[in-house]
Structure formats: structure tokens, C-alpha cells
């Protein structure tokens, strides 16, 4: 019984490592075949519409609410120490450094990443990808690479929009509703948030998340077994794996970026 369990565990580990290697090779192939997508940029534009523009509403609404919650909770906590004026700095720092990149990427993974997986998986299941290859058109260059670049371009832009909506939400709750002084809200924010240190690092994070989410989504779609269960399983795996990847990468990147403090 124990031997059996150990064997299945070992099998799963080997399988995971094998998939990671395969996914890395897939990533390299995407980069290798990216030339076509840049020569024909409308392919990327079409995919930016499908993944970026279609995620706008959820990103904007979620950003607004997260900012409002931050404003409310931050105020309640800061009030105990008599430093309500630091609310702007608290809201902005949490958003720009952590919540913006992480939440925007998580939302993107479940809104656009899962759709990418399902789309590529179904194209594979209905032999559209084989048909394309037999028409002497490389599916990696024509289908996968444009979606990858669309995701990589969209995620940082969505993150910036998320953070701005969040700051606006925090402002609405903190200044308009509760009545924190407007001047100290903005000035504390500007004093607390450093452009290079906080904003640029946040953008680097969201860029890395964008790469991770789209590679996972496209790989799972491309690798999905060509059946209904295969595609639905791959869609689930996309959301689970990209969420874990985002949080894990966030930890690694944070450790690297903010170690000086």
C-alpha cells in the first residue's frame, strides 16, 4: 500500500517536472515564432481586443471596490494611531506594490486566460490546428504568438487601470465619505510612493505575471486532450496553475525588489 502510494507520488512528481520542461520549450517556441505577429500587428490587435478590452469592465469595477475597501479598513486601523492622514499613502502603496499587479493578474487569468485555453483547446479538438499546419501555416506563429503578446501587453495596462481605479475608490471613501483632509491624503500619498521604487517595480511584477499567465493558458490549451473533458480540465488547470504561479512569483519578486528595506 505504502509502496503503491510512493510510486504514484513519484510518478506525479516526474510528470510535473516533465510538463514544466515541455512548457519551457513551448515558451521558447513562442518567442522563436513571434516574428510573424509583429510583421502583422493586426493579429495582435485582434487578440488585445479579445483578452484586454473584454477584461476592462471586471478590472475597473474590481479595482474600484478594492480601493473602497482599502479606504474603509485603512481608516479604521489608522484612526487608532491617530494617523488618518496616512490613508492616501496606505491605499496607494498597497495597490501599486501588491494588490494591483496580483489581483489584476488573477482576474485576467480567470477572465481571459481560461478563455484562451478553451479557445485553443477547442481549435485543437476540432482539428482546426492540424488543418492550419497542413495548410503550411505554423499554428505557433499564427495562433499562439499573437495571443501571447496580446496578453503581455494587456496585463500591465490593466494593472495600471486597476491601481488608478483603486486609488480613486480609496479617495471616494476616505476623502468624500469619511472626510479625511484632501490635501494630506494626496501629499502623504506622493511622499509615500516612489516612482522608480514602487511604481516601476509594480509594473515589472505585472509584466512577469502577464508572461506567466498567458504562457500557462496557451500551453494548457495546446496540450489539452482533444475531448470535452480534456478541454474543461485544461481550463480549470489554467486558472489554478496561473493563480498559484502569480502568488509564488509575487513572493519571489517581492523578496528581490524590496529587500533593501
Amino acid at each position: 500500500m505504502i509502496v503503491e502510494n510512493l510510486r504514484s507520488l513519484g510518478h506525479r512528481i516526474v510528470n510535473t517536472v516533465w510538463r514544466i520542461g515541455y512548457a519551457s520549450r513551448f515558451f521558447m517556441l513562442i518567442l522563436l515564432y513571434s516574428g510573424t505577429s509583429f510583421r502583422r500587428f493586426h493579429l495582435i490587435i485582434k487578440e488585445i481586443f479579445a483578452s484586454g478590452v473584454m477584461s476592462l469592465i471586471i478590472i475597473l469595477v474590481a479595482g474600484l471596490f478594492v480601493g473602497m475597501v482599502l479606504g474603509l479598513q485603512g481608516y479604521e486601523t489608522l484612526k487608532r494611531y491617530g494617523s488618518e492622514s496616512a490613508l492616501g499613502s496606505l491605499v496607494a502603496l498597497s495597490l501599486v506594490r501588491e494588490l494591483g499587479p496580483v489581483l489584476a493578474a488573477l482576474l485576467f487569468a480567470s477572465r481571459a486566460g481560461s478563455a484562451m485555453t478553451a479557445e485553443i483547446g477547442l481549435m485543437k479538438a476540432t482539428e482546426q490546428i492540424s488543418a492550419m499546419a497542413l495548410m503550411a501555416i505554423n499554428p505557433m506563429a499564427r495562433l499562439v504568438a499573437p495571443r501571447f503578446w496580446a496578453g503581455v501587453i494587456s496585463v500591465p495596462l490593466l494593472t495600471a487601470l486597476f491601481s488608478v481605479m483603486g486609488v480613486f475608490g480609496g479617495y471616494m471613501v476616505g476623502v468624500v465619505l469619511i472626510g479625511v483632509d484632501q490635501g494630506s491624503f494626496w501629499s502623504q500619498m506622493q511622499a509615500g510612493v516612489d516612482f522608480r521604487y514602487d511604481i516601476v517595480n509594480g509594473m515589472i511584477k505585472s509584466f512577469v505575471f502577464g508572461v506567466a499567465v498567458t504562457v500557462i493558458a496557451l500551453f494548457e490549451g495546446y496540450d489539452a486532450p482533444p475531448t470535452a473533458e480534456g478541454v474543461s480540465g485544461a481550463t480549470t488547470r489554467t486558472v489554478v496553475q496561473s493563480s498559484l504561479a502569480i502568488l509564488f512569483l509575487d513572493f519571489i519578486l517581492t523578496a528581490f525588489m524590496f529587500q533593501g528595506e
Binding site: 496607494a92 501599486v96 495596462l157 495600471a160 487601470l161 488608478v164 486609488v167 516612489d194 516612482f195 511604481i199
Partner: peptide, 16 residues
């Protein structure tokens, strides 16, 4: 809109 948001972050939220 994305780049506008980045500019707002840089100028209004950050200390650029």
C-alpha cells in the same frame, strides 16, 4: 487609457 493610468500613477500617486 492604460497609458493615461500609468501617467496618473507616476505624477499624481507617485513622486515623479
Amino acid at each position: 487609457a492604460g497609458f493615461a493610468a500609468l501617467t496618473v500613477l507616476a505624477l499624481k500617486v507617485g513622486n515623479l
